[in-house]
Nucleic acid binder design. Structure first.
Lengths: 143, 143
DNA sequence: TATCATTGCATAGCATGCTATTCAATAGCT
DNA sequence: AGCTATTGAATAGCATGCTATGCAATGATA
């Protein structure tokens, strides 16, 4: 009948995600970046000029969340929105010189955070961990 | 040089935690509960009358976060705050009849959400998954 | 006892996320 | 062409979290 938090995957997932976010924030805030901005930049560094809806698909957040994140990124000079001549509804999102320059240092910090979290994992444990997380994500998708 | 989100523990942890929260919210919102309220109630069902600072220690969130959560819970009739006669600074947090009645159904929903996420895991995989999450959490604590 | 440090909470301000709603542009049909 | 459905985005409103401050009650100490 008792519910033990320490044995609840959801409870642990929440706590772990908060620690990842907090650690990443501490590392990249000196670069002028916030975690969600970094995630968005990851997609744009991979392919510049995506539309908002494409970003939503790739990062798997709600459209409203992405709209707000993009507004803050534009405010901070990390992206530019350009209207699409062939479709008056959509805009393409483009990197600025500022955000292009942040790619290498920001990615280094993210890798460092992952390394800290998995410091005492063996290579095999890391693989297993990623696989299990992907399976849990897949099982919850849609539900 | 490329950073693959699908191979980043932090990215997957964030996505997984959001899916857990979304699923739990859908399950317990009919009970009039939100996820953070449920987490807080878990501690109080285990031991009623804790102080705010004790709740902070048990749930590992910042004090300000807990203060706001408790304010919303009081607004929703889930808790009562009672002043402590022996220490004018602290208050003890008490369950109400309403929140006492929610224990069994809310815990059932949380278990169901965990079961959904780990549906295709073997017993051994579940154990490993919990152990690995606890180790990642421990590695990030403090840092 | 007067002063300083600690402790327990509240508040302000902000980032992320979500749901719900609205609006305009485009696509598809009849 | 005209009507409807879909699509791309913005906005409102709220919950959770965090950091940074402020403040009052207590404790500790010179």
């Amino acid at each position: 009948m008792r519910f033990q938090k320490e044995r609840s995957a959801g409870f642990l997932a929440n706590q772990m995600a908060r620690l990842f976010a907090k650690g990443l924030q501490k590392r990249i805030s000196p670069l002028g970046l916030a975690p969600a901005q970094f995630m968005t930049l990851l997609a744009l560094w991979d392919e510049d000029g995506l539309t908002q809806s494409e970003l939503v698909r790739r990062l798997d957040v709600e459209q409203a969340t992405m709209a707000n994140t993009l507004t803050r990124m534009e405010r901070d000079g990390l992206i530019e929105r350009r209207s699409n001549p062939s479709d008056g509804r959509s805009q393409s999102v483009h990197l600025t010189e500022k955000s292009k320059a942040l790619q290498a240092p920001a990615i280094a910090e993210a890798r460092a955070q992952n390394a800290t979290a998995l410091a005492d994992f063996s290579d095999e444990e890391r693989e297993i961990f990623l696989v299990l997380m992907r399976r849990a994500i897949a099982a919850m998708h849609g539900n």
